[in-house]
């Protein structure tokens, strides 16, 4: 049973009606083609209308959908020979971040990704994709190996944020993210990041300082969760929708602000509705960046990266 989001209800209902009508026609040997055609036309228009006018809140629901494809789903489809590699060599392995080596279009690459669980058990294991310092340290260890062996890095971002916990603070959550940013700054291999679901603040950026940052159409990327912003600003977490609008966290807004490079279109209704098609879309954008970035002289990548981030931030003097 698929979970239905409130904005999809009219579509699902109409689809069910069409389905019933078709069954009825078949069972009773009736010719209802005209009626079915009309309803299918109506469905098309309805889908168009609803999906073209998704509110920010609708998109957030899609981004947080329990059936939304996770990093591992993409990794399985996009790469061959994927070998997951574990541990930061300092403390432990953090299951919230997956790292490994694989081939992308026959070229060896390093993959770094935040991994949500698909059910409660998995989520407990993955800590709901909220990494600890050791997750970031594992990530940077793999990225440095990528540089050593001249492998481009592909990152998938999908986290509510870095884990706010006692151990995380004791082991230097801030330092772990900061060090990743500083080390990623000078890696002489291309870095491509794709925000596939939620991009939660510093926890997302900790593996997201990239040459190209793409975002799925319904994904979100924010400095603070809409709920968190609402409770700070208006002491009222229920005003999250209002906060979400003000924070400018959609792919479209972030493209306009120059924070991300490309918006990766989603299949109608969200990535979970047709995963194969969605993989094809994601593949197109990664491949384009991959082909472009691998032509750039390795040694000039850090400077190009600096120029990219230097520009972000409107000021007057």
């Amino acid at each position: 049973m698929k979970q239905v989001l409130s904005f999809e209800k009219p579509i699902i209902e109409l689809k069910e009606k069409i389905h019933e009508l078709k069954n009825m026609a078949e069972e009773n040997n009736l010719t209802l083609d005209d009626e079915i055609n009309t309803m299918e036309q109506r469905l098309k228009r309805l889908e168009q209308e609803i999906y073209d006018h998704l509110s920010i809140w609708d998109r957030i629901q899609v981004a947080r959908h329990p059936e939304r494809p996770t990093s591992l789903d993409y990794i399985e489809k996009l790469f061959t020979n994927f070998i997951e590699l574990h541990g930061d060599r300092l403390y432990r392995d953090d299951p919230a971040i997956i790292t490994g080596i694989a081939k992308y279009k026959e070229v060896p690459v390093t993959v770094v990704a935040q991994q949500r669980g698909k059910n409660t058990k998995e989520n407990l294991h993955r800590n709901f994709a909220s990494p600890h310092p050791e997750g970031y340290r594992k990530a940077i260890r793999q990225m440095k190996l990528a540089e050593k062996f001249n492998r481009p890095i592909i990152c998938f971002i999908d986290t509510k944020g870095a884990h706010p916990g006692k151990g995380a603070e004791e082991r230097g959550q801030g330092e772990a993210i900061a060090r990743n940013l500083m080390e990623m700054a000078h890696l002489t291999v291309p870095i491509i990041a794709v925000v596939i679901g939620e991009g939660g603040s510093g926890g997302a950026l900790g593996i997201g300082l990239a040459d190209h940052v793409h975002m799925l159409e319904n994904a979100m990327y924010s400095v603070i969760s809409p709920e968190g912003a609402a409770s700070i600003l208006w002491k009222d977490a229920t005003k999250a929708e209002e906060a979400a609008k003000s924070l400018k966290i959609t792919a479209k807004d972030l493209k306009a602000l120059g924070i991300i490079d490309e918006i990766i279109p989603e299949v109608k209704g969200g990535a979970h509705r047709d995963f194969d098609m969605q993989v094809a879309y994601v593949d197109t954008y990664i491949e384009k960046s991959f082909n472009y970035l691998t032509t750039i002289d390795r040694q000039s990548l850090p400077n190009i990266r600096w120029e990219k981030y230097k520009k972000i931030g409107e000021i007057t003097e």
Binding site: L181, S222, A229, I232, G313
Partner: peptide
């Protein structure tokens, strides 16, 4: 922390300042 009222632009200042530290370091 990051200034909420400038949204993702604030978050990207983490990247900007960290790269600047890296350049300074190197």
């Amino acid at each position: 922390g990051a200034r909420m009222q400038e949204g993702m632009i604030s978050l990207m200042q983490m990247a900007k300042t960290s790269i600047a530290v890296d350049r300074f370091n190197r």
